[in-house]
Design a protein around this nucleic acid. Sequence first.
DNA 1: CGTGTAATTGAACTATTTCAAATCGAGTGG
DNA 2: CCACTCGATTTGAAATAGTTCAATTACACG
Lengths: 266, 266
Amino acid sequence: MSKVAASSNRPIYEARVAAATGGVACADSDTGSDLEANGHFSHLKDLLALPGLVCLSLETDAVLQHDEHPDALFGIVSDGIVGIQHVLTDGRRSISHLFLPGDIIDFRYFNKVASNAVCLFPCELVLVDADSLSKLGEDEQEVRSMLGHSLMKHWGFATRHCTDLARKSAVEKLASYIFECQNRNPVRLENVNKGSVHLALRRIDISDYLGLRPETLCRAFAKLKQSKLIAFNDIGYVHILNEDVLRNIADGCSVDKHLNEQRAAS
Amino acid sequence: MSKVAASSNRPIYEARVAAATGGVACADSDTGSDLEANGHFSHLKDLLALPGLVCLSLETDAVLQHDEHPDALFGIVSDGIVGIQHVLTDGRRSISHLFLPGDIIDFRYFNKVASNAVCLFPCELVLVDADSLSKLGEDEQEVRSMLGHSLMKHWGFATRHCTDLARKSAVEKLASYIFECQNRNPVRLENVNKGSVHLALRRIDISDYLGLRPETLCRAFAKLKQSKLIAFNDIGYVHILNEDVLRNIADGCSVDKHLNEQRAAS
DNA sequence: CGTGTAATTGAACTATTTCAAATCGAGTGG
DNA sequence: CCACTCGATTTGAAATAGTTCAATTACACG
């Protein structure tokens, strides 16, 4: 369980990285509880304390090569963000799925997807193989059950993301994404400034995730800002000013009506 | 295991319906093998032979009410198509996921999705609960493993569908959908006329699935037809005339270049 | 204080939507 | 068997949201 690379230049996950740098086995203080909170699984600490787990450190844009770790059953994202990226022959890119810290990447059918798992930031992954898993004894069954739940949860994310992509306008997609960040991001810092949501990704990645060009995404941000629904405070964070209206927009309540009202009033 | 309604006016699944009408327990001749082929699971026959399983017959547009069957762990679609449908407050509709005959709908996290499972055709569903499952004895574990695999497969479908929705043009989406039908549809009839693919859904449902308006979908069909890439034979079926080019389009190889070449040549 | 990348803005262009109208097809009743 | 009806599908023309491309600004880093 050696570390290949360390440190991250992002401020957001600093606390987590610091904890993880001490080694995964003793990451049961702070990181552990975050992971647990996200995974709804009480035995994650035991799982991470297993001997012989491989801990991967990957740089931004690194592709997760499953063939290099054929024994790995699943991987837990302990830091960074992994995206499932698909590139059309054309060159057009899209990100279809996100794995945030605490999320589990199930490798069992991974090879069936013609896309790559790409690190959108420097990432830390803990790989779990069947052998290590069997050392858990009677808890192994519970881990496998957790795997199933994790999978179902991610199927839900993917399904919801499809509804975002299918019929929503750029502004609606963005509003929906902001709430997705609010719900999924396990980072505790957001509790400090109430209503402040970390956007997790760079603009370009958000636009790939939402099926928009960066320019369009930028204009969507501008519209929400002009309409006084959100404000930018720190870099990478947005402050939700009117959660009700923003949620209506995310749910597809004739966006423009709301936006035009707001903009006319200002 | 009583049948509420029977018969379907669609020609496609006639064989299956006929087999299933004899009762699920004895559907191990034809239907069983189809289901098996789709589910990659060799014990489905044993599973379907379990006593006490609930067999649901649902009409078109019926919503699958999971609360009415709280004990059900999962359901196997034995006939018809179930779609996960989401309606925006606006009224805009989208279908984010499809369950075809042989597919397994996992109920464990079903309530976490704010969408409805809607029958897009008259459907037959076999519900499996934990009690019945435990009667399988040592095979139970294998069934649970199969559940995991099914889930992973469907996560893959959802992920791929996201890439279709995100950046592809109407024509590309349609081409992609045609191949999805070719791959996923377990109906054997398509083997009879080589190259003939059953489109599974009505135009309106395909358009909901692809995030397009019916008019746009229709124009996409027209373009593929004009370009001599597909032809319509029987109703609901398309014949693929140039699989290579169609696949290039589906993979996003600058559609219009291809289409314009083809149309110029005609 | 330059340098390079990411983010933003503007203006022309294009694909998709929208709305309205026509056509098709299955089922119904005479 | 044919006319009729209702819903699904198709076609057309105008409107619009998003893309494209080019240029500018902002920002982190050495």
